[in-house]
Simulated scan of single mutants.
Amino acid sequence: MSTIDPDLVWTGTLNALALAGRPKRTAGFYDTTLRDGEQAVGVVFDPERKLEIAKLVDGLGVGRIEAGFPRVSDEDKEAIRAISQAGLKAEIWGFARAMIEDVDAVADLGMKFAVVEAPISDAKLAALEVSRDKVLQRIGNAVAHAVKSGIHVAFFGVDSTRADLDFFETAYKTALDAGAKELAIVDTLAIASPEAVDFLVRRVKSWAGDVPIHWHGHNDFGLGTAGAIAAINAGASWVHGTVDGIGERAGNASLPEIAMALELLYGVETGFRLDRIRAASERLRAIAGYALEPWKAVVGQNLFIRETGAVAAQFHIPQAIEPYSSTILDTPRGIVLGKKSGVASIGIKCRDLGLDVPEASHAALLAAVKKIAITNRRLVTDAEFTDLVRRLG
């Protein structure tokens, strides 16, 4: 069970009732920010930044970090080498296509863990002009070579959620027969509904036995978090994702969102440092040069900020307006002033800024705040509000 103080979680009893009698699950986190995350358009991480990101991710408590794809460039090799030597707590994984040269590049860096990938959907094979027989040969040869090189392999079937199910099974069993120890189901284009995720994970477990199953999801339909949770509930051992869900197209599944949901809604202890999520997100954004929607779950700027007057009137009782305490994420709460503010907002802002304003003046201040906000179509800054108090208070 989660070790979060239940007094800080205000989600009610509905989830516990719905989940009663279901087996307790565990979840391992496999971070691919350094490879799949870097595939976001326009993002480039140099070796120094990759090492910094790896340390940030390690500080979040993930079990595995994919350090990168060494055949991409010499810089990637340099980064992987530095990360491998950094003494991080997480297992450091490499990435290789089902090609002997790729596997050798991983082995040459002394890596002991690696994903070996190959496309297995007919659409991907047709695009690459590779036959089913040819890709099976590549899978068997590459995995066997990796195992012979002392590498613990997880086979990664690209676009596996769109593959013919019989060929899917053949491809993954080929990898197992060649020595793969783990299997990663890959929803490359994020087409699997949560129900389909459950179906596929259970189907693989029915013939793979105790082999650890990974789920690698993307977010094209906004279901990245839901799919990862469905995979864990179906018996997957590992979920892949990135910080903030950074990645190509609509991004990858977001590990922080998955961790929050599993901990607070499902009672699954993940080992994820929830109190460090927002700082890690902020730093990654600075490095990669992207912005987030302010209303984004877990890391959004507005998560604990209130403008609406009706909500501000309840601000003194956090559980009335929030599903969990901001202290879980180690972030402050606050009130901002704007068009939608109410009299209660004025009182809270005065207290926050240490302004001694008679309650009889609050209505006039509110009217002035709304006028500024509507005229300029924006919030009113603390400096502007302080000036209003000076002039009207």
Rank of each mutant, 00 (worst) to 15 (best):
V268I: 07
V135Q: 08
P256T: 02
L388K: 08
V115S: 05
I213F: 09
I120K: 00
V103N: 06
R333P: 13
N252D: 09
L366G: 03
L14E: 07
G267M: 13
L128C: 09
A279H: 04
L355S: 11
L303Q: 15
K371Y: 15
A190M: 08
P47G: 03
L353P: 14
V9H: 00
I65N: 00
S237C: 11
R22F: 07
G110F: 12
A230H: 05
D108G: 15
R285W: 02
R249L: 13
P318W: 05
K77T: 06
H216G: 06
E257I: 03
S341W: 00
P6S: 15
L176K: 09
M111W: 02
I139W: 02
R202Y: 09
L292G: 02
T242P: 04
S281Q: 15
G28R: 14
G347R: 02
G110H: 06
A18T: 04
G150T: 06
E78F: 10
I139P: 07
L223M: 12
A228T: 08
A27F: 09
T33W: 07
V311Q: 08
L14C: 04
I4P: 03
K340C: 12
V106W: 07
L56Q: 03
I258T: 10
Q301L: 03
V115I: 15
A312T: 13
A250H: 09
P47C: 05
T161R: 02
I151N: 03
F95V: 04
L165Q: 08
A90T: 00
P6G: 01
G247A: 10
E282C: 04
G21A: 05
V158N: 08
D74K: 12
A208E: 14
E257V: 11
V243W: 04
L365V: 03
G37H: 06
A114D: 11
G12I: 04
N252I: 01
E52P: 01
S361T: 10
L255S: 04
G247K: 00
W238C: 07
A154D: 03
D102P: 06
L17P: 06
R22Q: 05
R391D: 11
I348Q: 02
R378Q: 14
D74E: 08
Y30T: 03
L189V: 13
W10P: 05
L379F: 11
G12L: 12
I374E: 11
F45P: 10
